[in-house]
Simulated assay, not measured.
Amino acid sequence: MPRSDATGQFPGVRAFVGATMGEDSVILRGLDAPASAELLHSTVHGAGRVMSRTQAAGRMGTRAECNDRNCTFWVSWAQYRHDRERAGITAAKAPFTLCPDHPDGTMLKRRGRVKEGRIDFDAVQAELSGRGIELRGGAADEAPDAYKRLDTVLAAHADTIEVLHRLRPIGVAMAPSDTVDPFKD
């Protein structure tokens, strides 16, 4: 029985190991080697993360946004509440804004990105498109730079597996970034 979160690699048995969006996945065959038994006849099921989803994509939270449709000004909801209290405004519906460009406007409570991530997902999409790979869905938390390189990870298991085929992607289909998944790690 292979380890949890692992791909079974019994001698002669083939298995699929996926890579990140835009990178080659592989078909492997397990080898009859002493190291295979030590690894419980299992190998990786992917390359593994090098940064958390939050590090990659940023953090979402509640923020106060300027109500002007074309304005990009926002502050954290905690900062907005703090500044309202300091200004002595206690009525919930009383107009109050922190936007320097729209002093007569108001602030709206919205969910949005409150901390930028390390991945520029627009650049990832452009790079994949430039290589002829169609991406549908996905987000920065699943970008290739959030993961180790699969070939490096497989090299560490070279005495227990044989790479039979490399599968070059022509398209990647994932849930869109606005899909909420409570089971994401």
Rank of each mutant, 00 (worst) to 15 (best):
E116Q: 14
A140L: 03
R136T: 13
P182V: 12
T160W: 02
A175S: 11
A156W: 06
K148V: 04
G12E: 04
T179E: 09
H165Y: 10
D104P: 02
A123V: 07
V124F: 01
A19M: 04
D141S: 12
T20S: 10
A94M: 06
D68R: 10
T97D: 02
A156D: 12
L154G: 00
L28E: 01
A35R: 15
P176I: 01
T54R: 14
P169D: 05
D159M: 04
P103I: 06
P95N: 05
H82V: 11
P176R: 03
C66A: 05
N70R: 15
L98E: 01
G138C: 03
F121S: 05
E116W: 10
A155C: 09
V124T: 05
C71M: 01
D83F: 05
D181Y: 06
G22L: 03
Q55F: 05
D83T: 09
T160S: 08
K93Y: 09
A33Q: 13
A173L: 14
I27D: 03
R168T: 12
S129F: 14
G18C: 03
G138H: 01
E162G: 05
V75R: 01
E142V: 15
P100R: 08
V75K: 00
L150W: 00
G117P: 00
I89H: 07
A175P: 03
A33S: 15
L98H: 01
